[in-house]
Amino acid sequence: MADKTDLKKTLDAYQAKRDRFRIVDVPDLRYLMIDGHGDPNGSPAFTEAVEALYPVAYTLKFAGKRELGRDYVVMPLEGQWWAQDMAAFTTSRDKSRWDWTLLILVPDWTTPEMFAAAVEQVRAKGGPARLGDVRLETLSEGRCVQTLHVGPFDAEAATLARMHDEFIPAHGLRRTGRHHEIYLSDFRRVAPEKQRTILRQPVEQVEPVEPAKTSAGPD
């Protein structure tokens, strides 16, 4: 049996430092995904979405170990967040207007056939209510700016303002895709002030500049 793979450690796109912005080229990656809308805090819809993702993720892990001899660490929950007016997300924080897609990264050897078999296994055990809404899809983000935020989710606004209004335009970039968060801490078990979250924003080059790839800030 090969060593257990931990994609958080082997993928460069999952490396970030606190209060330090970094430009990174994210490769195409394969995820389990499920969509939703509205305030995630105490929301049955959000809870049901999480409950649908994890059984499939763990079933895929065990199938890969059993059938392919390849073991890996199940990746943390991630989320893409957006709103028709993005100010509802970045400044006013009107969570009732948020749309979201929750994600769990899976290894690139995960095939549609493996995914379909995993869903059927979970369903046979009396699967969660939203199991049928889970899909396997490749996400293409390309060039992104990201940083590590430590603290409560509602304290992200200042960091996002620096990313969106200072770092991105200063490097001749503009935002293109959806705001992406990677929850390195389990927010059900970790105190808000200790939560570690990678904040990622897809971008494109609009002005020719030659910036350093990281911003000034503490290591």
Rank of each mutant, 00 (worst) to 15 (best):
E210P: 08
Y54Q: 13
T110Q: 10
D186A: 06
P211L: 10
R200P: 10
R22Q: 13
P112E: 05
P55C: 13
L53A: 12
E210T: 12
D219F: 08
E120L: 12
I104R: 05
K9W: 08
W109P: 07
A161H: 10
L7S: 09
M163Q: 04
E113R: 10
D133R: 12
R200D: 11
F21P: 01
A117F: 05
V190N: 03
D35K: 14
K95E: 15
R130P: 01
G127R: 10
H37K: 14
G126S: 11
D219G: 07
K61V: 03
D108F: 04
G127C: 03
T197Q: 02
D219T: 05
Q205W: 08
P208Q: 11
A16R: 00
Y72S: 01
F187A: 00
R143S: 10
W81S: 04
R97G: 12
K95I: 03
D12S: 09
W81M: 09
R174N: 13
P40E: 14
A45M: 13
Q80G: 13
A16Q: 09
T59G: 01
F46T: 09
D35P: 11
G79H: 09
L102Y: 15
W109S: 10
R20W: 03
S92I: 15
V26F: 06
T138Y: 00
L199A: 05
T10Y: 04
G42A: 09
L184S: 08
E156I: 00
W100K: 09
K4V: 12
G217D: 03
D99V: 00
W109D: 14
L32D: 09
E156S: 12
T197L: 01
L199R: 02
D94N: 15
P44D: 07
L11W: 04
L173E: 01
R143T: 15
A129Q: 14
S92Q: 14
H179E: 10
A45C: 05
D28N: 01
P202E: 11
T47M: 06
R70E: 14
L53R: 11
A49R: 04
A63R: 15
R135F: 04
L29S: 08
L184H: 00
V203C: 06
F115S: 04
E207Q: 13
D219W: 01
